[in-house]
Lab assay of single mutants.
Amino acid sequence: ATNIVSKVKWYNSTKNFGFIEQDNGGKDVFVHKSAVDAAGLHSLEEGQDVIFDLEEKQGKAYAVNLRIK
């Protein structure tokens, strides 16, 4: 899926990962520091509106092509 609009559930800049809620009630989506860095960001804030693409690797959903709404 591409261009999903949602909100950051939480992000831990010390552990370099977090999760984004899915508005459709699906499972929370993992977001890694590499996606945050690629977006030119230093961190994410809880409740922040984001747009991302969903990529599945080894049966897990990852946020990629992250951008701020």
Rank of each mutant, 00 (worst) to 15 (best):
G18D: 00
V64Y: 05
A35G: 03
V29Q: 01
Q48G: 04
K33M: 06
I68M: 09
L41H: 07
A63R: 00
A35Y: 05
N24T: 10
E56W: 15
D49P: 13
I20E: 02
D53A: 03
K15N: 06
I51P: 00
G47K: 06
E21L: 15
A61M: 14
F17V: 02
F30W: 04
H42F: 12
D23T: 15
V31E: 01
G18F: 03
I20P: 01
E46A: 15
V8M: 03
N3Q: 08
H32Q: 04
A63S: 01
G47S: 05
A63K: 02
A35Q: 10
I20H: 01
V8A: 01
L66M: 03
G59T: 04
F17Y: 15
K27V: 10
I68F: 10
Q48K: 05
K33A: 10
A1W: 11
K7R: 12
L54G: 01
Y62C: 08
V8C: 02
G26E: 10
A63F: 02
H42T: 13
V5F: 10
R67D: 04
N3P: 07
D37H: 14
N65D: 03
F19T: 01
E21A: 14
I68P: 08
N65Q: 03
Q22M: 15
D23R: 15
E46Q: 15
K7E: 02
F52Q: 00
G25W: 08
D49C: 15
T2D: 08
V64K: 09
H42I: 12
A61S: 13
A39V: 07
R67K: 09
F52K: 00
T2M: 12
V29W: 08
D53P: 00
V50G: 00
Q58V: 08
V36T: 02
N12W: 08
D37E: 14
E56I: 15
V36M: 08
L44A: 00
V8R: 00
F30H: 03
I51C: 10
N16T: 07
K57G: 08
Q48I: 09
N16S: 10
T14P: 06
Y62F: 11
G25D: 09
A61H: 13
A61T: 14
V8H: 00
H32V: 03
V50Q: 01
N16C: 12
D49W: 15
L44I: 08
V64I: 11
S43A: 11
E55M: 14
G59W: 04
S34Y: 09
A39I: 08
L66S: 00
K57L: 09
N16Y: 08
A1F: 12
A39P: 02
Q22V: 13
D49G: 11
G25N: 11
V5T: 12
V36E: 01
E21I: 15
V8I: 09
L54V: 13
E45V: 14
R67Y: 05
G47M: 05
S13E: 11
K9R: 10
F19H: 02
K33T: 04
V50M: 05
V29K: 02
K27P: 14
Q48H: 06
K9H: 07
V50A: 03
D28V: 05
S13D: 10
I20M: 08
H42N: 12
K69A: 13
K69D: 11
L41V: 08
R67S: 05
D53K: 03
G18K: 01
I4H: 07
A39N: 04
N3H: 09
K69G: 12
K9G: 02
A38I: 09
S13V: 13
D37A: 14
K60S: 07
I4W: 06
V29P: 00
S34W: 10
T2H: 12
K7H: 11
E46H: 14
G47D: 05
N12H: 08
K33W: 10
D23C: 15
A38E: 09
N12F: 07
S6I: 04
K15M: 14
L66V: 09
E56Y: 15
A61Q: 14
L54E: 03
K7D: 01
L66I: 13
F52I: 07
I51F: 07
R67M: 06
K33Y: 08
N3L: 06
S34N: 11
E56V: 15
G47F: 05
K9L: 07
N16I: 02
G47C: 08
A61P: 07
